[in-house]
Amino acid sequence: MFRALVVDRSEEGDISQKVTELDDSQLPAEGDVTVAIEYSTVNYKDGLCLTGGGGLVRNYPHIPGIDFAGVVESSDSPCYKPGDRVVLTGWRVGEVWWGGYATKARVKAEWLVPLPDGLSTRQAMAVGTAGFTAMLAVMALEDHGLSPEQGEVLVTGAAGGVGSVATVILGKLGYQVAAVTGRPETESYLRDLGASRIVAREELNETVKRPLESETWAGCVDAVGGAMLARVLGQMKYGASVAAVGLAGGAGLPATVVPFLLRGVNLLGIDSVMKPYDARQRAWERVVTDLPLDRLEAMVQEVGLAELPRLGSDILKGAVKGRIVVDVKA
């Protein structure tokens, strides 16, 4: 038997969540590695899966949780053996495949990554998809030439999960970070994470008629999209890049091609779901070296399975600060 948070949908379409026990035989038969999960986390997608939003969950009953970290219990794959510590993010686990809000999961070996030395399962979930995505964004900006001496790097949605970790990583690497937030009460939190300047959301969330403004930012990690991303594109320095990681402000992009044509601005799409194994391994290794774990801990709130329905609703409202670690045994 294993313990899990199960989401179900009635014939009338009502969504319910319940912590219950299931038999191991109910785990997905198509998987070849069974993991004893120790920790999971809460991301925006988890909020959708917990509440039935976005059409992400196709079949009910369902176990959400797009991330988990734990120890291999059994394996039919030569890649892993019992006792190996592993982490999983992406691959639509927790959406179309039973996920991490349980004490066990059975998944495909190619979806797993060995947990790097120096990182506990709890720390891995403090990172989670949000932190993993933030690291991919920083790596993409660096691969396109970003370096600290070029000037300020903008982080939008900075108080959220991706933004918080991106702020910490960039600060650790020596960048001047301008953190955008619509919550003034998070200023001290963001400065503690490494932000050198706070930018009020109101300064950037309106479109302007001019396709280009003063060259201000050497790089940007954007978790907002929409009108704010369009505005930021016109403020990038020549040849600078924006790593787009989210759409909290909307999926539309009311922009022109002028920043791309006259300033050589790059818009880099960051996908963490289907990222190939080698890039995943590289990102997790960079987490160990470039993400200060003490600052990571400062943004963590730990919860149990029973608290997830509330937090799922909160994260969709933008009311969650930093990172949430889920102790699946609690």
Results as ranks from 00 to 15, higher is better:
123 Q>M: 09
134 A>T: 01
204 L>T: 08
285 E>C: 08
133 T>C: 05
230 A>L: 09
272 S>G: 10
86 V>P: 03
65 G>R: 11
250 G>Y: 00
197 R>T: 13
183 R>N: 14
128 G>V: 04
156 T>A: 09
81 K>M: 14
293 L>D: 12
188 S>Q: 13
176 Q>D: 15
142 E>R: 09
226 G>M: 04
126 A>M: 10
136 L>T: 03
150 Q>V: 04
212 L>M: 12
310 R>L: 09
325 V>S: 11
152 E>D: 15
223 A>C: 12
133 T>N: 05
127 V>L: 05
295 R>Q: 04
35 V>T: 06
172 K>E: 15
280 R>K: 13
173 L>V: 08
87 V>G: 07
53 G>Y: 02
208 V>Q: 13
148 P>Y: 10
221 V>G: 00
41 T>N: 12
44 Y>K: 00
217 W>P: 12
225 G>C: 03
193 L>Q: 04
277 Y>C: 06
207 T>C: 11
74 S>G: 01
87 V>A: 14
270 I>M: 11
166 A>R: 01
291 L>C: 01
186 T>E: 12
25 S>Q: 08
158 A>E: 08
87 V>Q: 09
322 G>V: 00
303 V>C: 09
216 T>V: 14
131 G>V: 03
300 V>D: 07
233 L>A: 14
221 V>D: 01
127 V>M: 06
201 R>E: 05
269 G>V: 04
216 T>R: 15
138 V>L: 05
177 V>R: 12
194 G>P: 02
195 A>N: 11
214 S>G: 13
319 A>C: 05
232 V>N: 06
44 Y>W: 11
62 H>R: 06
15 I>W: 10
234 G>L: 12
212 L>C: 13
203 E>D: 15
47 G>L: 09
59 N>S: 14
287 V>S: 00
148 P>T: 06
330 A>M: 13
163 G>W: 04
213 E>D: 15
168 V>Y: 08
180 V>S: 07
82 P>A: 02
64 P>R: 06
233 L>K: 05
16 S>N: 14
275 K>P: 10
107 V>A: 07
70 G>V: 08
234 G>P: 13
199 V>H: 02
